[in-house]
Amino acid sequence: MDACIRDVKELSLVYDGKSENTFVSVYFDGRDKRSLQRRERACRAVLRGDELENFVKTMEHIRKHMERNRAVAIFASDKHDYVKVVPLPVPLPNMLVVDSSPYICPLAEMTGEWEPFTLILINTHHAKIFSVSCGRVTKREDKSFNVMNKHKKGGWSQARFQRLRKGSIHSFLTDVVHDVKHIVEGDIIIAGPGQAKHEFKRLLPESMQRSVIAMFDSDMDDEQHLFSESLVAMAEMERKEQKTLLAHIRRELLRDGLAAYGIDETLEAAREGKVEVLLIERGYKERGWICEHCQNAGRGDAEHCPVCGGRTSQVDIIEEIVEFAERTDAIIEFIDEEELRMLGHVAALLRYR
């Protein structure tokens, strides 16, 4: 499983069972600490008692991880002896949130935008295989083969030489296919000069051929430009997938099928583990509450839980929907579509009713 997905899943399962504001979530862009210092002063001013003491101690832990001046997300609680540091491939807006659980919405949105994929750069005698995950590029394989490019006079005939050369190339590409089977992660992009990349694709198993979303002409040494092109291709595929998911929800809604829409209906479905795909209007927030003791939640304000009578915590209700959906491995997409806003800012495809 992709590291980003594991991080979000782990964080979605962490909360204070008494609904106390004991978790601090910090998103730091690696540059401007002033906005976070201002947020820290504001939180100190409004917190009281044990929550204030926990906040002060937790911020001491967090500051140690901010000293390296890199883009990072830090989730911590001194009370729960918990610290989770997630390096970010791109800076996110600075944010400091104090809540009864880690604030994962920005991280979940980033994870959805940086889907993992495998990039293969190949010609007749050289192959480079990269895994791209959360914006990080890792070279997994760099394989070369000495293919004879010129026919020497005497000895073999030209025709025999070409047959042997083609056989050597085919053998090399087959070896690369074998390696890729053990490396491939997510979608596949194939690039390189000439026709070798097309022959390589034909040698892939059918299931992997269906995962190839783009093919580029590229020099073997122009890796940086290729990475940029690949990210553009992935972003375009992501937009198409989001439109397809929204169209699927539209069809289910019209026939009163496996779909939910609006805050209340989607929240209930997510809490009950029914959500297969969750669509959220990008940037939308709404005031809500949660009882961490029994995991009941709702919009607006509630000092005490209407189910168990326990203390509640004020939250962004969208954050709680995301956390419930993450716990059951739902696909989560943040999108900009007027149709989704008209449906109540959130909608979901359901596993069952």
Rank of each mutant, 00 (worst) to 15 (best):
K150V: 14
V137F: 01
Y352L: 11
V180L: 14
T312P: 12
Y15A: 08
V176L: 07
A191I: 11
A3D: 10
H345M: 14
R327T: 00
L279F: 03
H80R: 11
Q209P: 04
G135S: 07
R140L: 13
G283F: 04
F227H: 03
E268M: 11
K166N: 15
K79N: 11
L36A: 06
E333F: 04
Q242V: 01
F161W: 08
S133D: 09
T138E: 11
P116K: 03
F161Q: 04
L92K: 03
R202Q: 14
G167N: 14
H182G: 11
I190C: 05
K79W: 09
S19D: 08
L226M: 05
K143Y: 12
M234Q: 08
R165M: 14
F227L: 10
E281Y: 06
H198S: 10
I122D: 07
S101R: 13
R70E: 15
F28G: 00
D316H: 06
K33Y: 08
F145V: 04
I74N: 09
T58Y: 09
A233W: 03
E319R: 01
H170Q: 10
D301Q: 06
I5S: 14
I332L: 07
P87K: 05
G192D: 05
W114Q: 07
V72E: 05
R63T: 04
D78H: 15
K143I: 10
L203N: 10
P102A: 12
S207Q: 05
D29W: 12
A347W: 02
Y15Q: 08
M234S: 08
F334V: 04
T138L: 10
L226Q: 04
L203G: 13
E323D: 00
A297T: 02
I122F: 08
M237C: 09
P87E: 07
L121M: 07
R255D: 13
I183E: 00
V14N: 00
Q295M: 13
M237R: 13
E51W: 06
P205S: 08
V212G: 11
